[in-house]
Design a binder for these strands. Structure first.
Lengths: 218, 218
DNA sequence: GTCTATATTCCGATAGAC
DNA sequence: GTCTATCGGAATATAGAC
């Protein structure tokens, strides 16, 4: 703590934008986008209101920046997972693991709030959904293709539906691992994140494989 | 349209509370609770701000009233479904149908926004969740019991987890049937609500039954 | 790029007439 | 029970100094 101990304003320069994104990501996820004011974000990021408007233009611009900040990672990982998977004879379990893994990667890189936020926007269905949905479901066609090989005869629409529900479940679980752990019994303290992911992959596997009894269609 | 055509203020008396609940239900679901002001609700219900505070005390009180307005129906139907189901040897498909049906009943009685709102609060995880979760998952113990008979040997925690994910999917689909229809291909116009419910029941069946391959636990 | 100061609108909540 | 009027404060957004 020398002469420059209290002199940080110049040093934090370029990092302001990232601090704002990080603060908004957490606050939006925890309280909902509409319930969070720019002032709250500003205080958490230890800057001023003007900085938000300078960097992002508006609250909506800030939300876009937050979503965009980790979107590339997800789509990139999803593409990579699909490239690694063999062209055929992939099991439902392997496909589920490939489906969930990119989101797990985001979680492990500190993106839990981001996941919860995306799940939240998906549940609201309102604004800002289109931009994210486009990139998010961009790679779904390839998944559906592999699903079709797995479940021949099932309508394409049903496969697409299953994939959507798999995503819903994935975002719901990985968006708040602590709550998942908390909700299910008091003996859940030893329920590791890895085990939760395994349970999640099992659920996704079930969803992708379809009901067991070769259910009749109407 | 006689002499009393323009005289409605006295007639709408007792219905004000219901109009406020209906307006809030829709607006909260469509834009998120935090993004909706009491003034917006007031305008939609064609009353004044004071009425909201008179009937519900605060914004939080209004939200509580909205949630409570249809909660009884759901828990009631769930209890009825469990009573109807045979004590043993129930299939996963039957259990899934019994699980989904109460929410379908809410949908059919005009409660789509209510369902979406609950799903939204569940995804946010923040406030107002405890009150609803308590009543909502009150009857889950009986479901888990039947699940246990269906999948012997599977840890209770995993069964509970599956049931939670079944609820997540159910709320997500039935909370916005139009979006579900819209998201999956342009040929989805002829995808009736009944067929969507069938697809949903299939997904829930899969989730409740667990993965097909008798997956190994770590 | 950063910040203080401010403009303007809107928020939730209440008081008091009817 | 219903409404108008209003309070105190907080919201988004901008202007302009540094």
């Amino acid at each position: 703590m020398g002469t420059e101990a209290a002199r940080v304003p110049a040093a934090r320069g370029a990092a302001t934008e990232q601090r704002l994104i990080a603060a908004a990501e957490r606050l939006f996820a925890e309280h909902g986008v509409g319930a969070v004011s720019l002032r709250t974000v500003m205080q958490a990021a230890q800057t001023n209101v003007a900085a938000i408007h300078y960097h992002f233009g508006s609250k909506e611009g800030l939300l876009d920046a937050v979503l965009r900040s980790r979107l590339g990672q997800v789509t990139g990982e999803r593409t990579a997972m699909l490239r690694e998977s063999p062209g055929k004879d992939v099991t439902a379990g392997e496909l589920a693991r490939a489906f969930v893994q990119p989101v797990v990667a985001v979680l492990e890189s500190g993106g839990e709030c981001w996941i919860r936020l995306v799940g939240q926007l998906l549940a609201t269905g309102g604004d800002g959904l289109d931009a994210i949905a486009e990139s998010f479901f961009e790679r779904n066609a390839a998944f559906v293709e592999q699903l079709d090989r797995l479940s021949p005869g099932v309508p394409r629409r049903t496969l697409d539906f299953r994939l959507s529900q798999a995503m819903t479940v994935t975002l719901n679980v990985l968006g708040d691992v602590g709550r998942t752990r908390r909700l299910h019994g008091p003996d859940a303290a030893d329920w590791t994140t890895g085990q939760i992911v395994d349970d999640l992959v099992d659920v996704v596997t079930s969803v992708l494989a379809g009901p067991p009894g070769a259910r009749r269609r109407k």
